[in-house]
Amino acid sequence: MALPAEHVRIQHEQTKTKQWRIKYMKNNAFRYACLASALSLGVALFSIVVFISQTGFLVFKDVSWKEFFFSATWEPFEEKYGAAVFIAGTLYLTFLTLIMCTPIALAIAIFVAEMAPNWLKNVMRPMLDLLVGIPSIVYGFLGLTILIPFIRETTGTLVGDGFLAAALVLTMMVLPTVTRISDDAICAVPQHLREAGYALGSTKLQVITRIVLPAARPGILTAIILGMTRAIGETMAVVMVIGNTAQFGWDLLTPTSVLTSNIVMQITNVQFDSTWNYALYMMAFLLLFISLVLIIIIRQLRPKGE
């Protein structure tokens, strides 16, 4: 014969353990939910690589890899799929963009991080962040309506489309990104290194070039490589100003084409199970491959354990 009080106590304890159990189940469930979301990012990357490569590698059934990588004749209607123009174009365009972008971005980063007074920093940093968010199509539109007529006037060419226009537009797009990351890298250099430099009688320029920049080098390299991945993958801004013609454009002012612009111009017009389509997917796989390699390089740049 259990006392009513005893009964209540047991019941109370039971509900309490139940609450505890639920509490810890919730705790675990949350942990696994987070784990699952993290894992799903890996799955997403994996499936993108699989889908794109699977479709892309079908091209080598009909086209030899030698022709695909080294031939410069891209005539899909005559079954000629040489992507050399686009591959070289992408690499060349990225190179041009970096040549123009890096010095300017570094100068602005140094100005913001080392020279600007605080109020100016607080204005310039949000402004750079804002510029990162401007849609790429707007930059393309600017290039098309302002830059190309300007190039036509100053150089006297008839078209104006080409690597010069594309590289200038890309420089403007990539600049805020590279600047902000370099700025962060420069700010992360410990203050006492600078003070040691000044104490030895260095000028600001000497401190910056001989102490701060070498110390911030991994961060700055990361910024440049991230800028590179953006320049390589940028599509719409490039499409609008590059001219979209499958020919080499080394002299900067000839209409030409790169991997991204060629894919987006042609993909909507082709049958899914055609060699043409497979060739376009193979080009996308190349883009994917280049950007993955760049990321691995960034990871190697970073000190271990971070």
Partner: peptide, 25 residues
């Protein structure tokens, strides 16, 4: 390490590749 690498790689995948993936899918 694997998850971190996937996050960074995914962040650098060109948007056109995402587009093609969506198209295939």
């Amino acid at each position: 390490e694997f998850v971190r690498t996937s996050v960074e790689s995914l962040a650098s995948v060109p948007s056109i590749v995402f587009g093609l993936f969506g198209y295939v899918l």
